[in-house]
Design a protein around this nucleic acid. Structure first.
Lengths: 250, 250
DNA sequence: TAGTGGTCTAGACCACACG
DNA sequence: GTGTGGTCTAGACCACTAC
C-alpha cells in the first residue's frame, strides 16, 4: 500500500509513487548504478497495478533519474557534467573534454556538398541563393557515450580543402591547425526536447532536454568560417561565461 | 488501420502513430491552436486501443507539440521565443520582455531571511557559515503565461533595505534604480527536465526542458550583489551572445 | 528456463467543459 | 447529459538477459 501522507491527497497515484521513489534515490537509498526492484515487486510494495508502476517509472525516466534496460532492470543514473566556456565559445570541444578527464572522438554521419539552406546563405554571406556548401553531421562521444550531435555548414572552399580532416576530427581544432584562426562568433543557446530521431542518435529517451548551441564563427577580417549547431545532452553538458560590463546597464 | 510503410517495420505502434501525427502538424495539417480529433476518434482512425493512442499523444506532449486540456481536447501549440542577451547578461528581464512586445509581471512566492546555504556563503563571500541572507522565489510572467521561476539570494543589507521593491518588481531593475550598478557577472547555462514541483509552478508537463541560468552578479569594486538562478521554459526563451576573441584560441 | 522490461488490449470510473 | 481527457486495473504476449 502507498503510505498516504495527509498532504498527498489530491495527487495521482503515479505521482505519489514517483515522488516517493525520487526521494529515496536522492536520499541515497538507491545509489547510482544500483538496480531498483522489478516492476512486479514495486507493484506489490505499493499495492498498485504494473501499469501504474510503469507510469511512475516513466516520470523518473523523464526527470533523468533512472534508465531502464530490457531484460536486466531499472538503474539509477550516474551524474556527469562537462562544462564548456562561452567566454571563449570557440574552445575546441575535444580540448574541453580532455581537460575534464574524458576521452573523445567523433563519428561522421554525413559530409557532402549540398545546396545551402536559405538561413545558411545569409549567415555565411554566400553570393547566391544557389550556392553550394559542405554539410556535415557528426556524433560527438565522451568516453563511449554519445553526448552531442553537431550539424555544421562550411563554405565550399573550406570544406573542399579540409574534407578529410573535418570528417575525422573536431571542427575547431581542424580549422585552427590549418591556419583558419577563428576570432569572433555569434551564438545562441536554447533548449529543446529530443525528437524521436535525436533520441535514437543520442541513446536517450524521447523528450529528454537537449542544449542547442547555435553558432556562426568568423576568421580573418570577418569572414564566415562555419555555422551550425551543436545539440548536446543537457544531463552531460553546460556552458559558462564571465562577463564584465562597461558603464551602466540599459 | 495504421498505414504501414515498409520502412516502419520495427517501430512500436505508438512511435509510428506519433511520428505520423507530428508530420501532419508540421505540414500545417493541424494549425497552431487547432484541436486534434479526440482520443477515441484517433483510436478508430488508426485502429488501435485508446491506451496506445494516449501513449502516442504523450510522445507529442513530451516534444512540446501539443497540450491536452481536460474536458476540451488536445491542442496544437503556438510557437514563441523570447531572447535574452548574454553579452549583456544583466539586461533586466522586464526590459527584454517589453522590447519584444510582451507585458510582464512577477509573482513573489517567498521573500524571507534565512541561513545561507553553503554554496551561497561562498558565492556572496559571506563572513561566516551562519550568515543570514534574503531568499526570494518568484514567478515571471510574459503576458499571462508563467515562463520562469527565479530563485535569488541577496546579502542581508541589500535585501533588508530594498525589501518592498524587490518583492514587487524585477531584480535587476530594482537594484539599478537604487544605485546598485551591476558591472560584472559569472554565469552558467544548463538544461534540466522539469521536476513535478517545477511543472506545477510553470504549468507545463513533467519533464519538459527548462533552461537554467545560474548567475552571480557584482557591483562596485567586485562586491557580490546577488546570486541565484532563473529556470525558464525552453520553449519560450533563449540566450544570445556576440563574442570577439583576442589573439589565438587555445 | 526464469525473470525482466516493452507493448498492447479492453474496460472501468473519475473530473472537467460545454450546451 | 454528453463528450472530453485523466487515472487505474488485469491480463496477454513479446524481446531481451542471465543462468
Amino acid at each position: 500500500m502507498v503510505s498516504s501522507k495527509p498532504s498527498a491527497d489530491k495527487q495521482p497515484l503515479h505521482i505519489v509513487i514517483s515522488e516517493q521513489l525520487k526521494a529515496q534515490i536522492e536520499a541515497g537509498q538507491y545509489a547510482p548504478g544500483e538496480r531498483l526492484p522489478s516492476e512486479f515487486d514495486l507493484g506489490e510494495v505499493f499495492g498498485v497495478s504494473r501499469t501504474t508502476i510503469r507510469r511512475a517509472i516513466a516520470n523518473l525516466i523523464q526527470q533523468g533519474l533512472v534508465t531502464p534496460q530490457q531484460g536486466k532492470g531499472i538503474f539509477v543514473n550516474d551524474r556527469h557534467k562537462i562544462s564548456f566556456s562561452m567566454a571563449n565559445p570557440l574552445m575546441p570541444f575535444d580540448l574541453a573534454l580532455k581537460q575534464q578527464g574524458y576521452t573523445s572522438h567523433v563519428h561522421s554521419l554525413r559530409f557532402q556538398l549540398t545546396k545551402a539552406p536559405c538561413e545558411v546563405v545569409q549567415k555565411l554571406q554566400l553570393p547566391s541563393q544557389d550556392s553550394q556548401v559542405y554539410w556535415q553531421e557528426k556524433i560527438i562521444y565522451a568516453d563511449a557515450s554519445p553526448i552531442a550531435l553537431d550539424i555544421t555548414y562550411f563554405p565550399e572552399v573550406i570544406g573542399c580543402s579540409l574534407a578529410d580532416q573535418l570528417q575525422q576530427g573536431f571542427t575547431y581544432s581542424t580549422l585552427e591547425t590549418n591556419g583558419i584562426n577563428l576570432n569572433a562568433a555569434e551564438v545562441r543557446l536554447e533548449g529543446i526536447p529530443a525528437t524521436y530521431e535525436l533520441s535514437e542518435y543520442l541513446a536517450i529517451p524521447l523528450g529528454m532536454p537537449l542544449l542547442v548551441f547555435n553558432y556562426l564563427v568568423y576568421w580573418g577580417k570577418r569572414s564566415p568560417a562555419a555555422c551550425g549547431k551543436t545539440l548536446s545532452r543537457s544531463d552531460w553538458t553546460c556552458y559558462t561565461s564571465q562577463i564584465e560590463i562597461e558603464g551602466r546597464i540599459r
